[in-house]
Design a protein around this nucleic acid. Sequence first.
DNA 1: CGGCCAGTTATACCTAGGTATGGGACGGTC
DNA 2: GACCGTCCCATACCTAGGTATAACTGGCCG
Lengths: 207, 207
Amino acid sequence: MPAAKDAEPQLILVLDDDARIRRALDSLLRSVGHRTALYESALELLEAPLPPAAGCLLMDVRMPRMSGLELQARLAERGEHPPIVFMTGYGDVPMSVKAMKAGAVDFLIKPFRDQDLLDAVDLALGRDRDRRQASAALASARALYASLTPREAQVMALVTSGLMNKQVAGELGLSEITVKLHRSSLMRKLGTRSLADLVRLAQVVGI
Amino acid sequence: MPAAKDAEPQLILVLDDDARIRRALDSLLRSVGHRTALYESALELLEAPLPPAAGCLLMDVRMPRMSGLELQARLAERGEHPPIVFMTGYGDVPMSVKAMKAGAVDFLIKPFRDQDLLDAVDLALGRDRDRRQASAALASARALYASLTPREAQVMALVTSGLMNKQVAGELGLSEITVKLHRSSLMRKLGTRSLADLVRLAQVVGI
DNA sequence: CGGCCAGTTATACCTAGGTATGGGACGGTC
DNA sequence: GACCGTCCCATACCTAGGTATAACTGGCCG
């Protein structure tokens, strides 16, 4: 594991149909050292795959063709997506509640102070880092687990549930020595050097 | 463990300064089988300890003396509290966003359909059940852990980190046999019958 | 067909874990 | 002072875990 020294700063996706606002947000965000990517419509953003470095999506709620809320729903359907900060000039309460229930980080009413926006963006970037960390840990655990043969996975499940080798052998109709063999093999594959580590890995994978 | 057969249905705390609204909410909630407790002011609710069966707090945002948002903040300071559903006739977006950021389940605008309120309450009760389950599991794990002597706790930490008995002995300056003794003693106290169980318990406690 | 991998088992040997029994030291409590 | 709980160590014995080596089977692939 090369320890991803966050050499790649997070990117802030800015989506607004008004070019003047895009420019203003872009310059504000860049002035405090953020990197940005600008989008004019929800469709433009949906068509291309999201930049892997995307750490926050900042967007207007009301836009022609596809609203911010609908984009939020589409992104959620597709799986993981960066945390979202909404802005709007004409928001109502049900709209903001819906956005927040769906996981938005903040919902800002124009006009807002620059600092409020920057705070919301920082919060979103923080959540994105947490999300990335959790997701990377889960992915690597799953990848390791996927390298096991079916038998090894069975043995792992029973061993981490607390059964002794002979009990595992009984459950699976094997001899104890075979269980030991699968066990040492899966420990090697997973890089775990103790039963404690194995149990924790199993927890992550969700056995 | 007597398996708490949820013989005790959850209680819905209804807080509104308007007596007519309290009565209307009370009758609506009771008509679908919920149990309720009525409060006239935030202070009244804060003064007495919360009913242990409280599974949801349904309240107006705007009330004299103490607002719903302030009550929400006070309850959060005091630790765990039931999930909150807000209602209001005059809410603005920043208010609703603040409430949702602080963890509210929903923020309803009057007039709302009865069903919307009942849905929000059901969602809140569901979250309360999850919360109770997690909190009960954590409490029982902590209680078990607290019954260990200091030495046993040290041994547990090292054993669950994956060290062998002899390594634990080295770390603590003990002989291996003594470690085994502490180990069997703590396993007995915690009711764990395998290292796997012990590791999971340690995870819950946060070792 | 030959090679490879998963899966299976066996023998043998060594290490680690678990328990029973007994004993000594220390600190606090009744 | 007697008692108790915690902490420590030892001997002895048994069980469980781990590894090495070797061998057999069946399926898949080039």
